[in-house]
Amino acid sequence: MSRLRLRPLGRSDRGSEALEAAIGVPAFLLFIALIIAGGRLAIADQAVQAAAAEAARSASISRTQGQAHGSAVSGATSSLANQKLQCTSKSVSVDTGGFAAPVGTPASVTATVTCVVNLSDVAIPGLPGTRTITATMSSPLDTYRER
């Protein structure tokens, strides 16, 4: 025959909920902040890749090397603005060496977009205040177009 044990009259579980909340709530908030930071980085990475693709495409349909560089910078800037990605600093570099290839030779234009994303508003211990995201894309030049 088993006997139930009763607690002594002087002891209770009062206050244990407050202790559990003091430990659990900060851990839960840290978890939510990590999800937000990861989502923002994934969205920023996708936006920079789209900007690099737009820069390469804009450069590849230009008629000259000079126009290609200007078109690439303009395309990347407008793509980042359309996606509402605010970079603390950004750079666009374009390799237009394909324009020097003779007609009939396959060539391409390569664009690299670098964006520094501000993460200081997501307060996570150990997370840097900024993150640099870089993407490189290529677009072919028309093989038989006059260069």
Rank of each mutant, 00 (worst) to 15 (best):
L4F: 11
L29M: 11
S58R: 06
L34Y: 01
T130A: 02
N82C: 10
N118P: 01
V117K: 06
G97T: 14
G97P: 10
P128Y: 00
G98V: 05
A76N: 12
G39N: 03
G15C: 05
E17F: 15
Q86H: 15
I43N: 11
C115N: 06
T112L: 01
V25E: 12
S60W: 04
M137G: 04
R14P: 04
V113L: 04
A42R: 01
S2F: 13
V122H: 00
A135Y: 01
V116P: 00
V113A: 05
P106Y: 06
A81P: 07
Q67R: 08
G70C: 11
A135F: 03
R11A: 08
R7M: 05
G70I: 09
A47S: 11
R147S: 12
P106N: 08
L9C: 09
F99G: 01
N82H: 13
T88P: 07
A111V: 02
H69E: 15
P8C: 10
S12T: 04
P8G: 06
A72T: 03
S89I: 14
T64F: 03
G75W: 10
A100G: 13
L119E: 03
Q86S: 15
R7T: 00
S93I: 14
A50H: 07
R3V: 13
L80P: 14
V117W: 04
A33L: 07
V116R: 02
A21F: 15
L4R: 13
E146S: 14
R131S: 12
G66D: 11
D121V: 07
G24R: 04
T77N: 15
S2E: 14
H69R: 15
T143H: 05
Y144L: 06
G38L: 08
G104D: 00
G104I: 00
G15R: 10
L34S: 09
A22F: 06
C87L: 09
S79M: 13
A81C: 11
Y144E: 02
S74Q: 15
R131V: 06
Q83P: 12
P128M: 00
S62K: 10
T130V: 03
R5L: 09
L19Q: 11
G104S: 03
G10C: 09
S16Q: 10
L6H: 11
A135N: 00
A76F: 11
N82F: 08
S12A: 01
P128E: 02
A56E: 03
S139R: 00
Q49R: 12
L19V: 15
S74G: 14
I124R: 09
A135H: 02
L41P: 07
L30F: 11
A51Y: 07
S138F: 01
L85E: 11
S78R: 01
Q46Y: 10
A72M: 06
D121P: 02
A50F: 09
V117I: 07
K84C: 12
Q46W: 10
N118K: 00
S120G: 04
A68I: 03
L85T: 14
G98L: 02
I124F: 09
R145S: 07
I23G: 08
C115V: 00
A111L: 02
I61P: 05
I61V: 13
A42V: 06
A59L: 04
